[in-house]
């Protein structure tokens, strides 16, 4: 079963990450998730400014140094996990939910309805994600909620396409023809054969879609279109620290590395699950 994934780069990633790598990635995600739920377990106040210790380098006291207001960058990164991850997860949920619905309807309906749905989804998915999200934000105005919806809507076409293609393949698979041979009714076919085989790969796709959403969210926040200051969102932090790059690289580079680590971990874990999943499906 071949499945087209959201990001072509990760879809065809031909990299076999060794098990310790997968374990490290899982661990990192677990930590990031914990931080998103209970940031105070790891770090102190992300908003406490300290004018006496502005733009200090990484040290034992401030692991990631301090920013232009003397706030602890590490604390901000830890607290930022909540913003960045929840934006990503919420957007992915919107995209996956609507994508499944649209994809299934298109894949199961008759020619004309399918044509109409698929063509519009195709046209939408041809657009760069960023542009779709920007269009949405231009209309709805910047802010966390519109960021979530913008990213979610922008990602819908990917999921809808995958689910529709998958539905098509399964619907035409010989085993569905065979179910016809037993006189199975349409509803039974859909419930017992089509749905499970279509939805099987979706969780894995969602993990990889999540990395896409987080990356996009960071980019848009970087442009100042996400959560407004002083909220410690990762993209926004990188943007704020940018002005002090020549004297304090850590204020933007270290949060950036955390974003990268999150994306890499998601990709590695997603690929690992996908490989396992495909291994189960194919000899």
């Amino acid at each position: 079963m071949t499945i087209a994934l959201t990001r072509p780069g990760t879809a065809r990633l031909n990299l076999r990450v060794p098990r310790p790598g997968v374990a490290a990635a899982t661990l990192f995600l677990a930590v990031a998730l914990t931080a998103a739920i209970g940031p105070s377990l790891f770090a102190g106040d992300p908003l406490a400014a300290d004018p006496l210790h502005v733009l200090e380098g990484p040290s034992g006291r401030h692991w990631f140094g301090t920013d232009q207001l003397g706030r602890d960058v590490f604390a901000r990164v830890v607290h930022g996990a909540r913003h960045s991850l929840s934006i990503g997860v919420a957007a992915t949920l919107i995209a996956v939910g609507s994508g499944i619905l649209i994809g299934l309807i298109a894949g199961l309906s008759h020619r004309i309805a399918d044509e109409a749905l698929s063509r519009s989804v195709d046209a939408l998915s041809a657009f760069p994600l960023v542009l779709l999200a920007l269009l949405f934000i231009a209309i709805a105005g910047p802010g966390t909620t519109s960021l979530i919806v913008a990213i979610g809507v922008a990602l819908i076409p990917h999921f809808a396409r995958v689910v529709r293609a998958q539905t098509f393949v399964v619907r035409r698979a010989a085993y569905v023809t065979h179910a016809v041979a037993f006189g199975a009714a349409r509803s039974r076919l859909v419930l017992r054969h089509v749905l499970p085989n279509v939805l099987g790969p979706v969780p894995v796709l969602a993990v990889i879609g999540l990395s896409e959403a987080i990356l996009l969210a960071a980019g848009l926040s970087f442009l100042g279109l996400g959560p407004q200051p002083p909220s410690p969102e990762w993209g926004a932090m990188i943007s704020e620290g940018r002005g002090y790059l020549h004297i304090a690289w850590w204020a933007s580079v270290l949060p950036g590395l955390v974003v990268t680590a999150t994306i890499i971990s998601l990709t590695v874990v997603g690929r690992f699950c996908q490989r396992r999943f495909e291994g189960r499906e194919i000899a």
């Binding site: 079963m1 010989a174 085993y175 065979h178 016809v180 006189g183 085989n197 194919i282």
Partner: peptide
């Protein structure tokens, strides 16, 4: 219509060349 064929379906069976694709992989 397929509805009219359905009661007869079990009396008529099919064996394909490639049995693997004829089974639900799950």
């Amino acid at each position: 219509p397929e509805r009219a064929r359905r009661p007869l379906r079990r009396r008529l069976q099919f064996i394909a060349q490639d049995p693997l694709s004829a089974f639900d992989p799950r």
